[in-house]
Design a protein around this nucleic acid. Structure first.
Length: 947
RNA sequence: GCAGGGGUUGCCAAGCCAGGUCAAAGGCGCAGGGCUUAGAACCCUGUCCCGUAGGGGUUCGUGGGUUCAAAUCCCACCCCCUGCACCA
């Protein structure tokens, strides 16, 4: 961290530069970012998101907006608490992370067995880091979440009562991956095996056998008419049990599933699978009898440990059948030999028996061959999407497979011949090693995101929002569509108890949806003007919704009427949120929830106006990972490089949804560039010559103005990288070019440009710009200066246009010189005859009026002076190849005289080329043209001769 | 699998939505030159191929198509990244 950075932090703090209060004379802008979760110090990725937002906030502040950028801390959830618990247990990984990565002194570890102390510690160091990063935050509104903050809890209680009132919070049950040993849900990160696996619905089909039903599990109930036998594992344990009101046979291991999925289970008898082999059962709906046979691919823990066999369409079934026919006891062989696959699905690309065909094609050996899995997938997908049920399928005949599936399961359940149960499609093991099952959690509270009206209102609003980059909008829509009911409460961790059911705590993604409104209130809580106990339902109803009479609310809450009035007016002034910036990973959850809840609770005019997202940082090209040590904190990098270097390196890393990379090279580069800024500025300041502004000065101003407008345009779109590139690289490049061009720079111009330049860099590297600003003798804070209000005038555009012509000419000269490898002394320029240019412009106009090329050509042949007639073909070609911009510029200028352009800049041209310049019109009589070049002259492209 | 994003010249990365301004910005790297006692920094020039007159050729994941014209539009395919719910 640099000395001057420390100085400005203190100065900004002392003079309350970024504290924003209601001021109706100025247009407000309310920006924020999701509060960070306080289970660790802020990392460099946080800095990226915040710096981008800060650059925007600073820019808009300079543009004259009253900008509010508040900040807070998220403590809610299980992670902080979990870490404390693991610390208490002495988990070496946690201790290592605390000490080595987070920099906690070992002797202080003890006190972090309290989650409060832990969160409080991280909050303290994080606040410090953000100060140092130079974020233009109004810290008076800071708060943290959970019941440790009474006021915030009051707010969440109000929010959830409101949601409940409107029926957006509902009670329900839902399936989770569950560890029977830990007695808790097993999230992805808690798994030894089976990452990404989630509960899926299996269908149970009941095959009658005596007074019991064999409950076969399947994903493909529509294949029931093709069943030829049932498979069981001979050495597997099975039970006869009464489940709810039906007597079923299932594997012993699958029993827990039924129990955890809220079924009433009574075991009647346990036995081994082999006892059933050779018996028969009845295929539901179809009615025919089929045998029960052994198969080794059966996993008793998967489904019910019973499946029915459809050898025509299921590769595994065909393989098992084939295995059985080949090697087994005589009796089984006999039974197996009698079984003929039944073809029931017509699918393009396959014949009668798709399963048999694919097994042969892929050369699959037996049911234990790994390839069988793949074959199953191929057949399933093909049949499901394009298959049609054949005529032998009873009620399903003629239906597309996808419809048949729903129809059959509906019918089976209706007739008591089927059921649904959740299971895991792959093995999932908890960290403790136990195999997980699916459990139905009862009495859980849900945010009713599946409510179609709610969704629709959200969609309608998203349509009107500013979403940056635009590509993110599709993702938000997709999320709104996909979102289902969200379990919004937990039993463990920190947070606010659900007001009407206090054993539940509002979970972390659900207590962070409208808290931006609380920033308005927290200022008064922090100053002591309002006590948390005073924040009753009436208070929030009044402040946020304008409900109730102020006097009554005042009486009820004990809050002074004036204070109430101020809070309410503050809210009306600052709300809604104008821009919320975050990493893109929050789109599928937080950012979408944020919209949902605003739509649910607030009146329309308070719904958020804009969202912007950015990529996720990598470190030296690798994905960030604390456990792998690919991790660095904001404080560490600031200590190493200084705040502006960190800001610049991050901003220059990426924009849009691209992922920036944090690496030493870019930091080092920025370090050098920022250091040399001071030298450059000093160099410029030594200039002390005043004189008439000439072409180079006008050009410089025009270019800089143009670039500043581009910076604005890009910043408005949160294209912070592009904006920074222009401000930080492109502008100094044109200044340098100017200094090279003129023998004596002009002081007024250079000072004006310098002022603009420092200002437009200020949003990105505020410390450095503040320092330079004062070095050049300014007294005010650049952070509060007015952004240059500029407009590119007609003269400016003309200057830019003329310069473009000159540049083109110089390029041509350079190329000719390069090719001829000569050192010519004189440059002869033959400007296209004015008549030629006029004809050219006429031609362009004709085409524009809608004439065909042929007609237009004919007309200009009639109009052009005879001596220029030879140039017509090139003119036509030029019309299609000339830059549109240039063309438009020429057309804007009345009586455009190209000769003047070069003549005016003769001195500059001579300086750049080192040659004497002679200029002629191409149709001039007395011109020097030994190589007869003049005839090649075209509008905006003079012919040249070097000698 | 579903959803979202992406594949550009040595590297990073603009451009693509609104086709011609594109051999394609900028940065890095590399080469040459300047500054300097020397180096670093800084500044300038060059950086797809060919060409002794401003030209030509071949490039933007792969293969097709539309068009006078495609990095940009359409179709198919391949590859990469991210998210997918009781983690935050």
């Amino acid at each position: 961290m640099l000395e001057y950075e420390e100085k400005w932090i203190e100065a900004w703090k002392k003079d309350r530069v970024f504290e924003a209060d209601r001021d109706v004379s100025r247009e407000k802008l309310f920006v924020n970012a999701p509060f960070p979760y306080m289970n660790g110090p802020l990392h460099i990725g946080h800095a990226f998101t915040y710096t981008r937002l800060d650059a925007y906030a600073r820019y808009r502040r300079m543009k004259g907006n009253n900008v509010l950028f508040p900040f807070a801390w998220h403590w809610t959830g299980e992670a902080v608490a979990g870490q404390s618990v693991r610390l208490k247990k002495g988990d070496p990984a946690v201790i290592k992370a605390f000490v080595e990565i987070d920099g906690i002194p070992p002797e202080e570890l003890e006190k972090f067995t309290s989650p409060y102390n832990l969160a409080e510690y991280y909050t303290r160091v994080s606040r410090e880091a953000l100060y140092k990063l130079g974020l233009s935050i109004d810290w008076r509104r800071e708060f943290f979440t959970t019941s440790y903050n009474k006021g915030f809890s009051k707010f969440i209680e109000w929010q959830y009562l409101k949601l409940k009132e409107k029926n957006f919070v509902v009670k329900g049950s839902h399936p989770v991956v569950w560890c029977p040993s830990d007695q808790s849900p097993t999230g992805d990160h808690d798994r030894l095996e089976g990452e990404g696996v989630s509960p899926e619905e299996f269908y149970l089909v009941f095959f009658k056998m005596d007074e019991y039903f064999l409950a076969a599990a399947t994903f493909r109930p529509e294949t029931i008419y093709g069943a030829t036998n049932v498979w069981i594992l001979p050495e597997g344990e099975y039970v006869k049990a009464k489940i709810d009101n039906i007597k079923l046979v299932i594997s012993r291991e699958s029993l827990t599933k039924f129990i955890e999925q809220e079924r009433n289970v009574k075991i009647i008898e346990t036995f081994y699978g082999k006892e059933l082999i050779g018996k028969e059962c009845v295929v539901p709906l179809a009615g025919h009898k089929i045998p029960i046979l052994p198969a080794s691919f059966i996993d008793p823990a998967y489904g019910t440990g019973i499946v029915y066999s459809v050898p025509a369409h299921a590769p595994y079934d065909w393989l098992a059948l084939r295995d059985l026919q080949m090697a087994s006891t005589e009796k089984l062989k006999e039974i197996a030999a009698k079984i003929k696959p039944i073809s029931i699905i017509k699918v393009e690309g396959f014949g009668e028996y798709p399963a048999i065909e694919i097994v042969e094609q892929m050369g699959i050996k037996d049911q234990n061959d790994k390839q069988a899995e793949k074959a199953t997938e191929i057949i399933y997908s093909k049949e499901f999407h394009t298959g049609v049920m054949k005529e032998n399928c009873g009620i399903l005949s003629g239906m597309p497979v996808r419809e048949a599936k729903n129809k059959v399961i509906e019918t089976l359940i209706q007739q008591g011949l089927g059921d649904k149960i959740y299971d895991l499609p792959q093995i999932v093991r908890c960290r403790c090693g136990t195999r997980c099952i699916v459990k139905i959690l009862r009495d859980q509270w849900f945010l009713n995101y599946s409510n179609p009206e709610w969704k629709d209102r959200v969609r309608q609003h998203v349509k009107t929002m500013k979403i940056l980059p635009e590509e993110a909008r599709a993702w938000i829509y997709a999320t709104v569509d996909w979102l289902n009911n969200w379990p919004c409460t937990r039993k463990t961790g920190m947070g606010t108890p659900l007001p009407w059911d206090k054993e539940w705590i509002v979970e972390t993604l659900s207590d962070s949806t409208i808290y931006m409104a609380y920033y308005i209130v927290s200022k008064y809580v922090n100053s002591g003007e309002i006590e948390s106990e005073q924040m009753t339902k009436e208070f929030f109803d009044y402040v946020f919704l304008g409900e109730g009479k102020i006097e009554e609310v005042s009486k009820k809450t004990g809050i002074d009427v004036n204070i109430l009035k101020n809070v309410r007016e503050d809210f009306l002034y600052w709300y809604p949120v104008d821009l919320r910036n975050s990493a893109k990973e929050l789109i599928p959850n937080h950012l979408t929830f944020f919209i949902f809840h605003h739509v649910a609770i607030f009146p329309k005019e308070m719904w958020p106006k804009g969202i912007s997202v950015n990529g996720m940082i990598t470190i030296e090209g690798k994905k960030m990972s604390k456990s792998k040590g690919i991790f660095t904190t904001i404080s560490k990098e600031i200590r190493k490089y200084g705040a502006d270097v960190v800001r610049a390196a991050l901003i220059y890393g990426a924009e849009g949804m691209d992922d920036p990379d944090w690496n030493e090279n870019i930091a080092k580069l920025m370090e050098q560039k920022i250091a040399s800024l001071f030298e450059f500025v000093n160099e410029i300041r030594e200039i002390s010559s005043y004189r008439e502004k000439d072409f180079p000065e006008k050009l410089l101003l025009a270019e800089v103005k143009n670039m500043i407008l581009l910076v604005e345009k890009n910043l408005e779109q949160m294209k912070t990288k592009t904006a920074f590139q222009i401000a930080f690289f492109d502008i100094p490049n044109v200044i340098k070019r100017y200094l090279r061009q003129v023998s004596v720079p002009e002081k007024d111009t250079i000072e004006e440009v310098l002022e603009y330049w420092i200002k437009v860099m200020a949003p990105f590297i505020p410390f450095t710009c503040e320092e330079i600003w004062h070095l050049i003798g300014r007294q005010e804070y650049i952070s509060l200066e007015k952004w240059p209000a500029l407009k590119v005038s007609e003269e400016d555009s003309r200057v830019l246009f003329e310069y473009k012509l000159i540049e083109k000419l110089l390029e041509d000269v350079k190329e000719i010189k390069k090719l001829t490898k000569t050192e010519p002394k004189t440059l002869y320029i033959y400007v296209a005859a004015q008549e030629l240019t006029k004809t050219f412009l006429k031609y362009v106009a004709y085409i524009e009026e809608g004439l065909t090329t042929k007609e237009a050509v004919k007309k200009i042949y009639e109009e052009i002076p005879k001596n220029l007639i030879g140039s017509v073909p090139q003119l036509i070609k030029l019309a299609t190849t000339l830059e549109k911009n240039l063309l438009n510029e020429v057309r804007k200028i009345e009586d455009f005289d190209e000769y003047q352009v070069y003549d005016k800049s003769k001195e500059y041209l001579e300086k750049e080329t080192g040659m004497k310049i002679r200029i002629y019109y191409s149709d001039e009589q007395d011109k020097y043209d030994p190589k007869n070049k003049a005839k090649n002259a075209l509008p905006l492209k003079p012919a040249l001769f070097l000698e």
